[in-house]
Simulated scan of single mutants.
Amino acid sequence: MLKIAVIGANGKSGRLIVAEALRRGYDVTAVVRSENQSEARNVLVKDVMALTKEDLSPFDVVVDALGFWTAETIPLHITTAEHLCDLLSGTGKRFYVVGGAGSLWLDPQHTRQVVDEPSFPKEYFPLADAQRRQVAAVKARSDVLWTYVSPAAAFLPDAPATGKYVLGSDDFSVNANGESMVSYADYALAMVDLIANGGHAHEQVSVRS
């Protein structure tokens, strides 16, 4: 049975990933800074930057579901991902990151990302730019079995689960209606499918409806 640690299990995506992994019978531990709000019965209360190699040693899979939203904390997307990579370096454990859509590529030459578009909402730029730097930092690590999982541009917390999704590459894509969207629930389904199936090491993938 896979042993999975979900760091940031109290967040919206983290809680759904925990629930989906538990539904499939996996051994799941919620790693949280405060009282656990997920369905996990196994809980480690500890700040991510205080985690050690020993803390993560029992797990086969580590999921980074952390989210930082204020001007002061947004840079922690990079800092925490680098810290987790350092802890997992050379261990052979699989590392999955809940990412953003801003880093997806818009052209075949991979010179323009979604966040570079003039129409990109200015209020979301700091977060998207931090996540772009986050994925660049993760992609630089050949010593970690990472997979960076970007949602669609419209990442919808309250949309219903459909049980369907399209798994893509690190290129931006849209559905038949020209839309880029996915519910948190369908994203969680895709994330646990990725964990269950393995593969996609050292790849950024995307999930949309």
Rank of each mutant, 00 (worst) to 15 (best):
Gly99Phe: 13
Met191Trp: 04
Arg41Pro: 04
Pro151Thr: 01
Asn197Thr: 07
Glu179His: 08
Ala153Ser: 11
Glu82Thr: 10
Lys3Gly: 09
Gly25Pro: 08
Ala101Glu: 02
Arg33Leu: 05
Pro75Thr: 01
Met181Asp: 13
Arg15Trp: 14
Val6His: 07
Tyr148Thr: 08
Ala30Pro: 03
Ser57Arg: 01
Phe95Pro: 08
Met1Phe: 14
Thr111Pro: 15
Val97Gln: 01
Val6Phe: 10
His202Trp: 00
Val144Leu: 10
Pro121Tyr: 13
Ser180Thr: 00
Asp171Asn: 15
Ala137Arg: 13
Pro75Trp: 06
Pro157Cys: 00
Leu66Arg: 00
Lys139Gln: 14
Gly163Tyr: 14
Gly168Arg: 02
Val115Tyr: 08
Lys139Ala: 10
Phe155Lys: 04
Glu117Thr: 02
Trp69His: 01
Asp27Lys: 03
Gly14Asn: 06
Phe95Ile: 12
Asp171His: 13
Arg112Trp: 13
Ser119Gly: 12
Arg133Asp: 12
Val18Phe: 05
Val182Ala: 03
Asp47His: 09
Val207Gln: 15
Phe172Glu: 05
Asn36His: 09
Tyr96Asp: 05
Asp193Arg: 03
Tyr165Phe: 03
Ala159Glu: 11
Val166Thr: 05
Gly102His: 01
Phe155Arg: 08
Thr79Pro: 06
His77Trp: 03
Val62Tyr: 01
Asn175Phe: 04
Val43Ile: 08
Phe68Gln: 00
Val174Phe: 12
Met181Val: 06
Val98Asp: 02
Glu203Trp: 09
Tyr96Gln: 05
Pro121Phe: 05
Met1Ala: 09
Asn177Pro: 03
Phe68Lys: 00
Ala19Thr: 04
Ile78Tyr: 08
Leu16Val: 02
Lys164Thr: 15
Asp170Ser: 12
Trp105Phe: 10
Glu54Gly: 07
Val207Ser: 06
Glu35Pro: 12
Met191His: 08
Ile7Thr: 08
Ala159Arg: 05
